[in-house]
């Protein structure tokens, strides 16, 4: 009984902690200037990648992860990490029978960062704008 209670308490506190952390992250992300934060020349590729890795998991969890030509933000991040480890200058993606996509590591890092940050920033933007598209609500025509 005690063990069950402890397990429950632990699960509850972990959930609460995660939820507070997510809230903090959401507040923080809205203050970011994406052009600055994801600028490889200005901040260096490691820092930019770090930013992408910081925000992407929450986007994934919330079902907001971006995807362009079948390549997701997570895949960009993994590819950049791998390229840095192997000292490569390019990353490439082969999706089924589609044409191979090749990018410089810097470009891929920048895209990963922008995608990760923008996915979360859009939440607040949507919150403020979505009703302006609803007929019968704020949409005028």
């Amino acid at each position: 009984m005690k063990q069950k209670l402890l397990a429950l308490l632990l699960a509850f506190s972990t959930m609460a902690m995660y939820s507070f952390a997510s809230e903090d992250l959401m507040k923080e992300v809205n203050k970011i200037d994406v052009k600055d934060a994801c600028n490889v020349q200005k901040r260096g590729i490691e820092k930019v990648l770090e930013t992408a890795q910081k925000y992407n998991p929450l986007g994934v969890k919330m079902g907001l992860e971006f995807m362009r030509h079948k390549v997701t933000t997570s895949e960009y991040i993994d590819a950049v990490k791998k390229a840095l480890k192997e000292h490569k200058k390019e990353v490439s993606f082969q999706k089924g029978e589609d044409q191979k996509q090749v990018f410089s590591v810097e470009f891929a890092a920048e895209r990963a960062c922008k995608f990760a940050v923008r996915a979360l920033q859009q939440v607040k933007e949507a919150e403020e704008s979505y009703r302006y598209a609803i007929p019968g609500d704020k949409f005028t025509y």
Binding site: L64, F66, R68, Q122, A126, E127, S129, A133, F139
Partner: peptide, 18 residues
């Protein structure tokens, strides 16, 4: 349905309402 999302920042309504 009405929230804009994705890297193109589109909502379902962008195509099917507006």
């Amino acid at each position: 349905y009405y929230s804009q999302r994705g890297y193109l920042k589109l909502s379902c309504a962008n195509c099917h309402v507006q």
